[in-house]
Amino acid sequence: MSTAVIPYISESHPVTGVTNSKLGTWCFLASEVMLFGGLFSAYVLLRTGTLEWPHGKELLNVPLATVNTLVLITSSVTMVMSWASLVMKSLSRYRFFMGLTILLGLAFLVVKAFEYGHKFQHHLFPSTGTFYAVYFTLTGLHGLHVLGGILVNLYFLVPGSRLWRTNPEQFTGRIECAGLYWHFVDLVWIFLFPVLYLL
């Protein structure tokens, strides 16, 4: 049995100047822009197509969402610090910051669950109206992305980190790519927060 070796994982490809892993991650993120972009476009169209649109701040919990925004921003800092720790050759510091990133991601989801629970208690569902349909779809899809990121980060915190002993450079590259995804999810929230809660 022959093993296929993917070239240019840790060293830059001579044509593109970046590693294949990084280029692949950015292509994936480009497709994610299309996914969220389509829904964002639907939001704009639905909103401009109606005579009345409720103010997000009168229906949603702005203080809670502000705290959640700060939680997600902080998790982006800890994520990039976990990568920087690997560049500085410290696996223990990497573990510390990656663990923090996962905890902050979970905290975001717990706050989100409280928000959803509160809405459900008051019988507000995606089917209640166009605003809630858009709100639950966009924040729900974003929440799934946070969950996915947490699972990937958990893998890299425990079993995936074994690669550090055999190929530290490749492991650092993986964390950089996982970071690109995590920061993208943060970036989506940076737009969702004002658009849904504040306008």
Binding site: T16, G17, V18, K22, L23, W26, C27, A30, S76, V77, M79, V80, E176, G179, L180, H183, F184, D186, L187, I190
Partner: peptide, 18 residues
């Protein structure tokens, strides 16, 4: 976020084309 955390400020041309 993109410029610093995602290192876009120091990235190669190919990523910007994408």
């Amino acid at each position: 976020v993109a410029g610093f955390f995602m290192h876009l400020a120091f990235e190669r041309v190919i990523i910007f084309v994408l």
